[in-house]
């Protein structure tokens, strides 16, 4: 931290004198480069309309009471108060975290193994496997959810058919909280494991082979070099995948919605935060409240990302 600060003070000794002139300079600079600014403006205009405005408006809306048609009335912090006292909201938070844990940990684990295998020299047809593992990621979510709903169907599903072939009793998967969460998690794993594997693969390929060669000379086993070389070098990549899957995991919506409907199925086992937001805003017409839930979710994701960062990054600092 101290290094760049020193550098800046060295380059900028008389900053207090230069500031006013620079400000004037900025405006003329912009005017001078107006064509370039115009050229990059489409992104900023689109972002302002479809990104910035909705963000600010939802902030405003979260303090209002609005059914979507009638007049908005100021609601103070009532929306937020309702949110933190609504057991269904906390249930949705719990469900989301559970589904996230059920899906992310096996997913990243499998992705790492697949990436390691794809990188290994003894595997043939590697491009074929790379495409094969990545393919689920480009499928339509709704179609996938419909297929999975027939796999997990309570009485006539594929899984129950297999169970019955082994003489076991059918399980009413989608009539149980854990069954719904399992089905959703498997859907997430199936869809995203290849994506993460490809990212890990890129990470693996960027590790210099000299490190492995040096380890080999020193007599390290394959497992030792995996844990001492591969994992530490992959740490930033792992952090990236953990954070992206956290953000994705916190926003799970389509899978439970198509699988078990707007209420999240039996006892709301599949009621995730976004599904809850959707239901409250678009089914029950509490648009102000929906916005408040959106901001609640924002805080939650920020918090969890911070924890992730601490865990993944902090552990690294101790090792090195």
């Amino acid at each position: 931290m101290s290094q760049p600060l020193q550098q800046r003070t060295q380059f900028d000794p008389g900053s207090s004198l230069q500031v006013p002139e620079r400000k004037r300079g900025l405006a003329t600079e912009i005017w001078k480069h107006r064509k370039q600014y115009l050229a990059i403006s489409p992104f900023y205009i689109l972002f302002a309309v479809f990104g910035l405005f909705p963000i600010l408006f939802s902030m405003y809306l979260s303090f209002q009471k609005w059914d979507g048609i009638g007049v908005m009335t100021f609601n103070g912090v009532n929306n937020y108060q309702f949110m933190v006292t609504d057991p269904e909201f906390w249930k949705a938070v719990g469900n989301t975290l559970l589904i996230w844990i059920y899906s992310t940990i096996p997913m990243l684990f499998f992705a790492l193994i697949i990436a390691f295998l794809l990188n290994a020299s003894f595997v043939r047809f590697r491009t074929f496997f790379r495409i094969g593992y990545f393919l689920p990621n480009v499928t339509s979510l709704v179609a996938v959810a419909i297929v999975f709903s027939t796999v997990f169907s309570n009485n006539y599903g594929l899984l129950n058919y297999i169970l019955s072939q082994f003489g076991a009793d059918p399980v009413e998967w989608l009539n149980k909280t854990w069954g719904i969460q399992l089905a959703v998690s498997i859907m997430v794993i199936w869809r995203w494991v290849g994506y993460n594997a490809i990212i890990y693969l890129a990470g693996l390929q960027s590790i210099p082979t000299v490190l492995y060669e040096a380890a080999k000379i020193d007599g390290a086993t394959g497992i030792q070099s995996f844990f001492r070389i591969t994992i530490p070098n992959l740490r930033p990549i792992i952090l990236f995948t953990v954070i992206t899957s956290t953000i994705g995991g916190m926003q799970i919506f389509t899978e439970p919605q198509v699988l078990v409907g707007n209420d999240g199925g039996v006892s709301g086992g599949g009621l995730t935060i976004v599904l809850y937001l959707y239901r409250e805003a678009f089914v029950n017409n509490y648009f102000g409240y929906g916005s408040a839930v959106g901001w609640g979710m924002f805080i939650l994701i920020a918090l969890i990302s911070l924890i992730n960062w601490r865990v993944v990054q902090g552990g690294g600092a101790k090792d090195e």
Binding site: E172, N175, K176, T177, D263, S267, G268, V283, N284
Partner: peptide, 20 residues
């Protein structure tokens, strides 16, 4: 109506399916 009906139906399905 539909908000209330949804709430009651959710509790009912817990009774029927999860033995609440």
């Amino acid at each position: 109506y539909s908000n209330l009906n949804g709430i009651v139906n959710r509790e009912l399905s817990s009774v029927a399916l999860e033995g609440k």
